[in-house]
Each structure stands twice: as structure tokens, then as C-alpha cells.
Nucleic acid binder design. Structure first.
Length: 479
RNA sequence: GGCUCCGUCGUCUAGUGGUCUAGGACGUCUGGUUCUCAUCCAGAAAAUCGCGGGUUCGACUCCCGCCGGAGUCACCA
């Protein structure tokens, strides 16, 4: 049987780290089994609807490379894929329930329901609406809430992550199927949609675990086969024990894209937060994830979100792409991350800069702060030079003299390559009787005035002979 | 409060009765790679397996109780 999964978010804002896993795992499962993944927009709550949220969702999935087979943009045979456009379908199914006596119109005003609830709270007994069922409900018509008529009974089922589950009759209640405004509730709509769309695996956060018995009752009353149920544990906020949510400052997934995180790293990290294949592998490509994913190995307890580890993955991926796919593959990803001063430089030069600095990047946006001196003259900061821990003991005139020696030596290097530069510097080391720490620090600072730089000979090679000499001379005369 | 789920290094995890004096990764610390920062490499510290009882020759692994944490009890999803 073909496996059909779905990601069914409500368009109430951006997708953040805490809820994107319920898109990743369904995607992986569908691809692994040559099945399909559906994207369905659950927009039945008009009050919480946010303009543009659907686009944000699509953008996030596209960035992560989680393409869907049916849904907005791509269409499909089971549309529409916006719940707000499926009203007649829900009404059709609701009428079945009414006819079989399993649903009733509820004329009870909300204030009255609130009273019942209060009453129970005071008596410290669980509030079950089925104990307050109206005696002679009117015939249902749109504009009235429609409730399920629950039969109190026990259920057992298997959750692919949590294992064998069982609950008692107290979990069953008369849940609202269709709201006064004519829209269905999530509880009803998702059952109908999953059935109509042929979804075989319902994957969602654990928060739905306790309402599962009601869903089971609904499948039964509707004569529907139960899909496989998969509860995904929460991702926990860095502090405390609460699930990660927007209130804890959960960043949107695409915010990390703007900060220079690679989608491969994001997918890798998120997929492995609460899942592993039992081996000691840490780095997975999307294809490897698809191949090795398994529901049974999803963790059943929550996992804490750790941004530091995300950045570690990102560093790994930056190097992996460079080392395996080449400088131009990585370079193609860096377009938006160079400092403004790099605008006037050509691709070839920027690629050379990238080639010597890439293994220092945690995120691509580090390029902005780490490469400026390759594109613009650094501001000469003599304090930085004089107070350097290796140069402290030298007098200013000694530094000036040394700088002039360096200039002379490097002027003689005809072919200004990293190797030749290194040879010249090594000769200078013996001629001046200086330690590498002293001589190299001096040159590095004089040429960059940056807190750090790539290996000195590589830095000078990329800078080029003219600029190197000019900067050294400028510093020498500034002392 | 009722119900349900969860509980191994600071964090993510491996572990399905003996190979566990508990393995890997992030992070931390130390050392190495002719300067810096990073990478990389080597090494260290870090979990009385939530606690208490069983079962067993033997339990992190099975059973029971307790404690702790979380989720849920909406005309929100």
C-alpha cells in the first residue's frame, strides 16, 4: 500500500524550530517508501489567521528541500488543500453522523457551559460535557454548533513512537464537530481530510495524544479505518522544561537561513534531534536520512534545543561542501553574506578569500566580520600593534626597522605565491633572529588589523604583493 | 486535581538480562599543528543509569511502588 503522509500546519505565523519536525519526519517517511506527502493548510480558525503565513510555510519547506506532492501551488486530485475551502465536505460527513444518531445540534449557550464547567471544578470532578447533554436538541442547521455523541468506552491502540496505549471511558466526550461559525474544529476536520486524502500515517506532536481516544471514536462512528498514529515528542526550550514555542523566543527556521545557516545543516540537526539510526554517524545528507529513517527509532521523550550544536553541524557542512563539491559550490551559497566593501570585487577574488577562510566559518554571515580587510584598507591601530603580547617587549623603532626589513625581503619575491612567501619569511626569521610569534604577529597585524586571520602566507598571497607592501609601508611610516 | 506519557554524562544520545569498571557526539578543559582565530589531531574531566523494593546466579535492561518532569482536560490547532 502506498504510504501517504501529510504536514498540516495552521497559517498563524512562521514555522519555528519547535514545530518543523512534524514536517521533516513525514517527508522522510514518504520519500523512503516512494509514497507521497501532502501539504494541507488548516485555516479553520479565522481569528488566528495571519496574512502571508501560508507563504512563510511554503518558503520554509522549500528552503529545507521538503517538497510536497499535493497541496498549495502544486495542486493534486484531493483538493482543495485549504480547509476553509472544504466546508461542504465536512457538512457531508457531519450529516452522516447526524443520520446515524452520533451527532446533535447543541443549543446550550456558552455561558451555561461555563457554569457546568465551574460546577465540576468546584466539586473537583472531571468536566464531561456528555453528562450535560441537552435533552431534546433541535434539528441541526448551519449556525448551530454540532457535537459528537460520545459513547463512553475504553480504547487501546498502538502509537508508532509511544508504543501500546490504553485509556478508559473518561477520555471520551461530546466534542464540538462544527462551530457556530460553520467551520469545523480541528478535531473533526483533520479526520475527514485525512480519510478523503488517503493519509496512511498521521504524524503530529504529542500534545494530541490525549485526544486520540476521541479521534478513534470518530473513525469508528464514521466507518473509517484508523491510520497509523505517530506522536512526535516536543522539542524543549533551552531553559526550563517547557516545549519550545514562540514565547520562548523560538526563532523561525528561515531566520537561520538569513543568518548563514545551510539548509543541509538545519535538516541534519533537526532530524537527529530525537532520532538516530543506532550507529555513531552524526553527519547525514538528505538522501541518507531518507534511506535510514525509521519511525521506531524516534525518541519518546522530549529533546532540548541546542543552538550551539546546530552551529557545529553548520561548520561541518560548510567544510563538507567545500571539500567534496569544491570552492565554487560553497561560493555559490555565499552571495548574500559578503561585507558591503566586497561589492566591487570579482567572483574570482572573493572565491580565493573564501578558500582560505572557509574552515573558520561557523555561519556564512561570519564572512561579513571576518573578511573586511581583504576588500578595504584597514584602519591603522598602533595600539593594537604595540600592545600585542609578542610585540610588547620591542621598542617602536625596532618595530619600524623590522617592518622595513620585511618590506625589502618581500619586494624581492617575484612570484608572490604562498610557498615563495613562506620561504622568504623563513629566511627572514634566521636573518633577524626573531621568533615566528614575533615576526609573524607583526606582519599579520600590520596587514589586517584584525583580531585574527588565516595563515599568514595565504593571507599575503591573496592580498597580493602590491597591497601587502603598501600596507606594511604605511604602518612603518605611521610609527 | 483527573487522565496520559516520559526519566542514562551539563546537552543530544547508544544500550532490548552477562561483551557496561556504561560507548559516541556537542559543550568544557589540556596538549600538538612555525603568529592569531579556527580547522584538524591526541588526551582529560563529566552519568552511584530519578529513588526504593522485588524477580534472577546476574538488571541500565523485567515487575511493583514512590518521586520528579511534561502534555491534556476550548465553538485553538
Amino acid at each position: 500500500m502506498e504510504i501517504v503522509t501529510r504536514f498540516a500546519p495552521s497559517p498563524t505565523g512562521y514555522i519555528h524550530i519547535g514545530n518543523v519536525r512534524s514536517a521533516i519526519y513525514p517527508y522522510l517517511l514518504a520519500r523512503q517508501n516512494n509514497g507521497k506527502m501532502i501539504l494541507r493548510i488548516e485555516d479553520t480558525d479565522r481569528a488566528r489567521y495571519v496574512e502571508g503565513a501560508t507563504e512563510l510555510i511554503e518558503d520554509t519547506l522549500e528552503w529545507l528541500g521538503l517538497n510536497w506532492d499535493e497541496g498549495p501551488i502544486v495542486g493534486g486530485p484531493n483538493g482543495p488543500y485549504f480547509q476553509s475551502e472544504r466546508k461542504e465536505i465536512y457538512i457531508k460527513w457531519a450529516k452522516k453522523l447526524i443520520e446515524s444518531g452520533r451527532a446533535y445540534a447543541d443549543p446550550t449557550p456558552p455561558e451555561k457551559i461555563e457554569e457546568y464547567r465551574k460546577e465540576c471544578n468546584e466539586k473537583k470532578i472531571p468536566f464531561l460535557y456528555r453528562n450535560y447533554r441537552p435533552e431534546n436538541p433541535p434539528e441541526w442547521e448551519e449556525g448551530m454548533p454540532l457535537r459528537f455523541k460520545a459513547e463512553p468506552k475504553s480504547y487501546t491502540w498502538t502509537d508508532e513512537v509511544m508504543g501500546e496505549m490504553s485509556t478508559g471511558p473518561e477520555m471520551l466526550d461530546d466534542i464540538i464537530l462544527i462551530k457556530k461559525d460553520g467551520f469545523p474544529t480541528y478535531n473533526f476536520a483533520h479526520i475527514v481530510d485525512d480519510a478523503e486524502m488517503g493519509v496512511t500515517h498521521v504524524m503530529r506532536g504529542v500534545e494530541y495524544l490525549s485526544s486520540t481516544p476521541n479521534y478513534l471514536a470518530l473513525y469508528e462512528a464514521l466507518g473509517l479505518e484508523r491510520p497509523k498514529l505517530v506522536s512526535l515528542p516536543h522539542i524543549l526550550a533551552p531553559q526550563g522544561n517547557k516545549k519550545l514555542g514562540k514565547r520562548d523566543g523560538a526563532k523561525s527556521v528561515t531566520e537561520y537561513r538569513d543568518d548563514g545557516v545551510l539548509s543541509e545543516a538545519m535538516l541534519n540537526y533537526l532530524a537527529c534531534l530525537g532520532w538516530n539510526d543506532g550507529t555513531e554517524q552524526e553527519i547525514y545528507t538528505k538522501d541518507e536520512l531518507i534511506q535510514k529513517f525509521s519511525l521506531g527509532r524516534i525518541q519518546n521523550s522530549g529533546a532540548r534545543y541546542d543552538e550551539t550544536k546546530l552551529f557545529w553541524y553548520n561548520g561541518q557542512w560548510i567544510r563538507k561542501i567545500f571539500d567534496e563539491n569544491g570552492a565554487d559550490a560553497l561560493y555559490a551559497r555565499t552571495t548574500d553574506f559578503w561585507p558591503e566593501v566586497a561589492d566591487n570585487y570579482d567572483d574570482e577574488y572573493k572565491m580565493r578569500v573564501l578558500a582560505i577562510i572557509y574552515d573558520r566559518l561557523k555561519t556564512l554571515s561570519d564572512l561579513r566580520s571576518m573578511t573586511e580587510y581583504f576588500f578595504t584598507e584597514p584602519r591603522i591601530d598602533l595600539d593594537m600593534l604595540i600592545n600585542n603580547k609578542f610585540l610588547k617587549k620591542m621598542s617602536e623603532s625596532e618595530i619600524e626597522g623590522l617592518l622595513k626589513q620585511v618590506v625589502k625581503k618581500l619586494s624581492d619575491v617575484d612570484d608572490f605565491t604562498a610557498d615563495n612567501i613562506q620561504n622568504a619569511l623563513n629566511e627572514l626569521l634566521t636573518e633577524t633572529n626573531k621568533k615566528p610569534a614575533e615576526l609573524f604577529s607583526l606582519i599579520r597585524i600590520a596587514v589586517s588589523f584584525a583580531p585574527f586571520s588565516p595563515a599568514l602566507n595565504l593571507t599575503l598571497e591573496v592580498l597580493g604583493k602590491n597591497i601587502t607592501l603598501a600596507r606594511l609601508n604605511a604602518v612603518a611610516s605611521a610609527i
